[in-house]
Write a protein that binds this DNA or RNA. Structure first.
Lengths: 202, 202
DNA sequence: CTTGATCTTGACTGATCGGTTAAGTACCTT
DNA sequence: AAGGTACTTAACCGATCAGTCAAGATCAAG
């Protein structure tokens, strides 16, 4: 197998398996087998399971950012960005539900929730990515206020609340293993934003 | 060791260790050692680690319900109950942070998040308890509306939103490992409830 | 064609995993 | 005192855990 292909394979497989199951229940052997990479190679590229996991999730975050940059494109009206984001959240969960038969929730939150108390580097990564997601919302809300779509004194505080709500709702959907929990995503979010009518027809 | 004392010790120790660390990182041996109970006794009382965990968390939920019944006592004004509950959430996290040096979040949500995709009986337990907590909020909101403190058309929907917000916020606090995240608990909750001024001075 | 670095391979480590077994002890009922 | 049940004890199981190691393969650059 050529050059860095093994490393990429490990990154992708690790993220897939761990987000589908959990950190604790996925073994290094399992990751290696599904990657078609031998264990020695694993420990050539990564010093530990924890280090691979951080790398795998940051790798996934980098590609997610590309998607989010498109969704939150400055060329769209702010409220359209939010609507597209809510659609994206729901669609992502729906896709994974189809593929794996289980509603998986947010991989970053799930991993952070499992390991925040035990592995500081994983906690820091989860925290950093959570802040990254929150920042997309804050920028958009700030522009929505400038645009006159939303009236709020503190865009930062409003973004915090919206982000908290989304995190909580996706979490609840995972525990309920029911995509219909996400039916409340738009309505709750728009209520938080003070928009009692959805901007685009839902 | 007498009668059911071993069983209770296992229930308490299992909940403590797993909520402090994670399901995957706590072994049956560790639970047994910390309980002072031998492994054979463990498997006399419980058929598996999973079954013990469900029993341990339901045992904890039963005692938590006693506390919640006091907090949500029908003899108090509805908004006082909510305020007491918010104080309780914060105090619980503060206490555990002191004792364990880590912000642990909600044990039920954490366990559900880790294992919902893998262990159906644990998922069902987490879902049931989540609904139990939500019900306290819904009853209180319903009475707050009757009482004229809150104006909302759908108490069920409002309770859903509030519960989602609390779950999300405690989760974020865990990942941030920072109790100050919970500073947003009351302000966000009261904003959700349409109360822009806290009912009791904060 | 050689060198040295990068990557791969498969066998291996000791520890720990969840769970089992069978013999033994304490206790309650009669 | 007898018998049965509930519980305890310690040794034990095969599987799996994260991680190591040394020898070999592949590669680019000189």
């Amino acid at each position: 197998m050529r050059q860095c292909e093994s490393k990429l394979k490990l990154l992708r497989t690790a993220h897939e398996l761990i987000s589908q199951q959990s950190y604790g229940s996925v073994g290094v052997d399992q990751i290696c087998e599904q990657s078609g990479v031998k264990k020695g190679s694993f420990y050539h590229f990564f010093r530990s399971k924890s280090e691979l996991t951080v790398a795998a999730y940051e790798y996934h975050w980098a590609s997610l950012q590309e998607t989010l940059d498109r969704i939150f494109s400055a060329e769209k009206p702010p409220l359209d960005r939010l609507d597209d984001y809510f659609n994206h959240v729901r669609q992502t969960q729906t896709d994974r539900l189809q593929r794996y038969g289980r509603l998986l929730g947010c991989p970053f939150v799930s991993l952070g929730c499992e390991l925040s108390t035990q592995d500081e580097s994983i906690r820091l990564m989860a925290q950093k990515i959570s802040e990254g997601k929150r920042a997309y919302l804050e920028n958009t809300i700030r522009e929505a206020i400038e645009h006159g779509d939303v009236s709020a004194a503190d865009p930062r505080a409003l973004a915090d609340e919206l982000h908290t709500y989304i995190v909580g709702l996706v979490q609840e959907a995972k525990i309920a293993n029911d995509i219909r929990v996400l039916d409340r995503l738009k309505s709750g979010a728009y209520r938080l934003l003070g928009l009692h009518i959805a901007p685009a027809a839902v």
